[in-house]
Amino acid sequence: MAEPIIRVEGLKWKYEGSRDWVLKGVDLEIHQGEFVGIVGPNDSGKTTLAMSLNGLVPNNYPGVMEGRVVVDGMDTREHSVAEIAESVGFVFPDPESQFLSMTVEEEVVFALENRGLPREEIEERMWWALELTNIPEDYLEKPPYELSGGEKQRVAIASVLAMRPKIIVLDEPTSMLDPIGKTEVIEVLTEMKRRYNATVIVIEHRLEDIAPLADKMVLVYRGTIPKVAPPREFFQDVDFLLEHDVFPPDVMVLANELRRRGLYDGPVPMTVDEAESIVRGILGRR
């Protein structure tokens, strides 16, 4: 098998002044092109794990680190965040906290200007990212602060996409958005999966949206990773997930209940359509 693009080996992390380890010896391998969903309850260490993938941990936060994280051949302890940013794009939960400019156009090209790319390439990448994230041309002159929540997060994603990183980490990109905004961002993630062959790592609570997109699901619980598996296998044991404070989508809970009652024995459904065909199948047998 090919060398993983991300390798986390025995990662332990403790923030300065804290007595407890946030991450308690985490091992994880992610391969090029994989779409990975990271789930887990609040305060389980998901964000710390995400920030360790682009070097914000340990470079920008004081604390104690053990183990190592190698991203695209770069040990995060030996490279700056700016160097790692050549390979890893990071989308923060709060879109406003990541804006660096006062117009959408400046925001999207900021990282490209930093890299010193030729003007023609900046222009081409900007239009590509805007098109992928469905941001209209007349938004270019608008301040990103004045857009709706979903639009703001789309601009943030476009700014990262324009960098064309090999890896994109999205830390709860819908957590601060209203339902419409959440749907807009999920649509962008779907487009990214369909058209952009990067490694995408999404920390997300909306499991029903992420599960159908993911190649691999990772459960983070109290600073450990008790389960890594493809989505169908990951959600097969609903009781295990519930014990770890993860609430699977309703369609999976339904399938689990049908299995418990001896009515169904197949793979767990990922979508409402799949659940519908399972139910129709059961009804048809009767």
Binding site: N54, L56, N59, V81, Q98, L100, N114, M163
Partner: peptide
């Protein structure tokens, strides 16, 4: 907090 966030965002966009 805002200055901390801007600093992280600048680093994450490859600003040196």
């Amino acid at each position: 907090r805002r200055s901390d966030e801007v600093s992280n965002a600048l680093d994450s966009r490859g600003f040196r």
